[in-house]
Write a protein that binds this DNA or RNA. Sequence first.
DNA 1: TCTATTTGTTGGAGCGCTCTAAGGCTGTAG
DNA 2: CTACAGCCTTAGAGCGCTCCAACAAATAGA
Lengths: 331, 331
Amino acid sequence: MARPTMDDVGKRAGVSRALVSLVMRGSPKVSDRRRAAVLQAAEELGYSPHAMARSLASRTSHVLGVMVSDLHNAFFAEVVDGLDAVAAEHGFDLILNTGGRSPARERRALRSLLSFRPAGLALLSPVVPTADIGRAAEQTPVVLVARSSRLATVDTVNDDGERGIGLAVDHLVSLGHRRIAHLDGGEGSQSAPRRRGYLAAMAAHGLAPRVVRSEYTDVGGARAVRGLAGDMPTAIVSCNDFNAVGAISALEEAGLRVPRDVSVVGYDNTSLAALRHVSLTTIDQPRNEFGRLAAEALLQRVRGERVEPVRHLLHPSLVVRSTTAPPVRPA
Amino acid sequence: MARPTMDDVGKRAGVSRALVSLVMRGSPKVSDRRRAAVLQAAEELGYSPHAMARSLASRTSHVLGVMVSDLHNAFFAEVVDGLDAVAAEHGFDLILNTGGRSPARERRALRSLLSFRPAGLALLSPVVPTADIGRAAEQTPVVLVARSSRLATVDTVNDDGERGIGLAVDHLVSLGHRRIAHLDGGEGSQSAPRRRGYLAAMAAHGLAPRVVRSEYTDVGGARAVRGLAGDMPTAIVSCNDFNAVGAISALEEAGLRVPRDVSVVGYDNTSLAALRHVSLTTIDQPRNEFGRLAAEALLQRVRGERVEPVRHLLHPSLVVRSTTAPPVRPA
DNA sequence: TCTATTTGTTGGAGCGCTCTAAGGCTGTAG
DNA sequence: CTACAGCCTTAGAGCGCTCCAACAAATAGA
């Protein structure tokens, strides 16, 4: 199992270790003859450079650290996918850790990631205190995804939730709705800006807002709709797709048809929303793009192209499907 | 940005670098006095060990390489989640790559992972030729997830798809169904064993099989059901949950009720199936467990506890929800 | 008291690589 | 035939750590 080293390759090709190093790094200042000899020897021995030794000697890293709460959540998985795509394009590798939404575990994960002296660090919706993030940012460039921060040393990539919900409200208003309720996400992470966006959009249209406390689950959506009984609005803007689907089933159980009697809009454009059976009008977040932008932000700093922080605020977009329609009797 | 090293810590604590190393590794053969001094100096300097230098010097690795086609797919994301959980428990870190279902890209990803000299390698449903896998296995322990192999040097973790579909058929038969159709997954990856499982189970019950060519999408499921019109079975076993949901909506469009007129069973127990609105009877694959077992298989080899290959064949389980019921008029 | 043992500590070599500075070679000019 | 550019090539130091052998100090046994 003793794998060959540069010395072995050099010996076999009849050159020095340093020359092998130059060839492996694609240096132009190597004669074609030597280069061919080295490459052939490497091939014969099945040699491949040792990334860690290389990183240690060159004092540079081609690794990006990624901390994610859990991959279980499709949102994060797709962000990581985007990160990986950009990283791979530039010859970087990802080292991954999960923090499980616990500050203690996240702190440990952070330490572990930093011990690799990564070229940069992407933290996806972390829950650790800002102080820890600031400390990490002293060691390596840091980008925060789905968490905002005022730290002057870190970049951020976020979805403009306020605007997203605004799109949903505008859409409903343009269909003729005036009595539009919002089922909010309670304490959930992006719930506050979404609620703000709803209130702002309603105010902009001169409509009376109606926020119903709910949560990011289908059960929550169903419960909230049952609470609405007796004074049903003509349209509902849910905090996310799961909540919307729960709301729809409760509406149908109550004998109301969607979108004939009540229109419903979700948020996130999960694979669920796209199902024909569900065909939910919803707000799309460019998840993969989150990852791509995060990776690019890090790479810019790595290359020293930028020192001031960048704050990406991505524009969500409306995806109209079959759960929204004009109200039957305009209010 | 010049981070402190062991020498710095040693100097500050008034001890040698070697002693600092012992403290960092938690060696018992250090006096309490020195240990405290070292720990304090490390704290003051904000020192943390350099994982790569450590790995290089000790000729051991605490890194597991993971190659996944894409994280977009929730199945893989959850497997990675399981891998990470076990890895973290044992102080291992994950280094992640995607292969994008292209042999060329996978080969590149493999090379990149191997360049870190990982303690082990987990390949999730890889498409590279067996020869490449064998070559990787010469360098480090390899475990294959969702791909079987005869290589004596690699471990495998798979779902027993044959048995899973068998559970579905048994369930339907026990409800009284006799005319049970299977919408298969066409060329899809686990489609063949599932089809085999269906045929075997039907034969075991002495029933006439009926396989309808379909695919792993809701559109595919809907189309297949429309093809069934005129000779509708009393029950349908779909190749996966998406297909099942598509089948259900086509059935409802045709004026049939589920499960009153036709029962439907999915496969995978995705989050979709669990939605109240869908509430699909389905077969659960222990996805997280796949990852856990894969990680454990690697760690066993790392620790030298095992040399013979292990072949995990995980038992899927039936999750009964609301889309199956006895047929109205037993055939 | 003196030698064995145990316990704690240290210098130095070396992991596989990069990088700098210096060296060898060619070819052309003097 | 020597000088001086190039252009290749190489020796050697060193990245931050681990590990071994050696040693000093403290303890035990005789």
